[in-house]
Design a protein around this nucleic acid. Sequence first.
DNA 1: GGTCTGCCAAAAGGAACACTTAATGTACGA
DNA 2: TCGTACATTAAGTGTTCCTTTTGGCAGACC
Lengths: 304, 304
Amino acid sequence: MYDPTRLAALVAVAEAGSITRAASRLGYTAPALSQQLAKLEREAGAALLVRHHRGTRLTAAGELLAGRARRVLDEMDQARHELARLAGLSGGRLRVGTFVTAGIHLLPPVLTAFRRAHPDVELTVTDYEPPAGVTAVAAGDVDLALTHAYEPAAADPMPSGLFSETLLVEELVLVTALGQMLSEGSGPLPVAELAGRPLISSAPEHPPRRGVERALAEAGATPAVVCESPGYALVCALVSAGLGVAVVPEMVAEMSPAPLAVRRLEPAAFRRTISVVHRGDRNTAAATTLMALLRSGFGRASAA
Amino acid sequence: MYDPTRLAALVAVAEAGSITRAASRLGYTAPALSQQLAKLEREAGAALLVRHHRGTRLTAAGELLAGRARRVLDEMDQARHELARLAGLSGGRLRVGTFVTAGIHLLPPVLTAFRRAHPDVELTVTDYEPPAGVTAVAAGDVDLALTHAYEPAAADPMPSGLFSETLLVEELVLVTALGQMLSEGSGPLPVAELAGRPLISSAPEHPPRRGVERALAEAGATPAVVCESPGYALVCALVSAGLGVAVVPEMVAEMSPAPLAVRRLEPAAFRRTISVVHRGDRNTAAATTLMALLRSGFGRASAA
DNA sequence: GGTCTGCCAAAAGGAACACTTAATGTACGA
DNA sequence: TCGTACATTAAGTGTTCCTTTTGGCAGACC
């Protein structure tokens, strides 16, 4: 059972004439390819390459295996195309709406997987802050959209003909600058402890988070800075710089490029739900496929 | 690029009718196969399997991919056979002589690799304690033989028509029962410290180790038990039981099933060289191939 | 002759992957 | 209601693979 990646490496060397060139053409470093080819030679039980001082050629055995390799790679390519055609995806397009955070942290691996399986589907990603995503699906501007809803808050009803499926529920956690963690212990922090703390908040009248901001105000947190920017990049940067604390989704806290200290809150009253809005029976095949990937993809994300 | 192992799993499920049966037929557990198939489905971007309550069937997409998979696996099989034929190995045989320790610790992974590449070569492994291995190659009883030579000792000259290639040089180290390590420190132990220690030794007149035993006697070690058994399994067992200390090859000390404390000696005068004895130009193709595997295989063994 | 350049290989460290066992879920038949 | 058969989920462990760094080697060039 030869690893097709290694077979592709062999073919690439045959065509490029050197390991280094083949590696850069495939997007690897030269040592990586050298190791893989050495393993392939061991597995094949024969010398496949002749190392020249001006490149690398294939031996007779190498040419033979490269020939079979081309056929193997061809079969796999055909399989991919056939599967795409069977799924009715070939040549179609897929338009995804997403809010900023999901677009940064969640969507990329899923879209990568989709693209690998269906390279000829035209992909479009558009940024919509909720509830604009729902509107976009309703208007037919996108095939599906990722949205979020915060608790405590009232859930907006779905327009008729649209459906919402929950992908992930995550807690909101407290983030502070490193070394500024409030009080002792590592367990959940009572919300009351936020009283008097300078709070970096989203716009209080920003619909999705309205309930959260009000609850924080009731706990006695002191508004320090109000961020009007979509997403949490700015909030995290300000918190990391020591301007105050903030309550953000767990995923944001963990993936933040700025260093942050993270702490859960008690009681765990703050949550956000990430959902995908779609058209149900009227979904395109591409949309259905992406939704399947979203489901398993988010399963992995929550496990990590 | 579909992993051929996963493709084989899909074919196996198609033929077995259930994941559990396919798994046991392939030598895996059911969860392993289930996970691999789930990944294949994600990669393919389509549902391949229909989970019944009485087994698992393939969907149309699954059947399609399974068909391509059969062809891919076929190509790989053909490639293997062609490579074997090209190497002149098909239907041949390979007889290997080895001393006990190498047969236990070094040869198995190399033979496994050889067998995978050339399943139709008839393999024979025979146990020869040096210098009988050289004689066996000279007599044509085996195609090649692994032998060892200890230092200090005189190297026997090769009979004409035979050649010896060094594969590995390893130090001899001191082993004791756990908790009985002599003196302090973790650096190399001066040989003089062995004076008066009870020594588990190989037969003093056993040719390969004669020089080693004599040097240990000169250092003042007290013979406690003399082992006449080939290999070091018995020596290690006695040492581990606390009957005395011993000086054994590093590889033996590290791979011993009985728990042992290991310490290097100073000066590092004791070594053994593991070589392969062969016929040079008159080697069979199979022998040449195995020697290539031995070279890279021992490279890995020394790295581990 | 000495230096530079291009190419390949070895070593070490970190991230990802695949396997295992154990536990959970689900439909069917007695 | 229980027992069986099948599949999945979860958690832990070992291996694999890729990257960076380093070293060696042959020809080109000054």
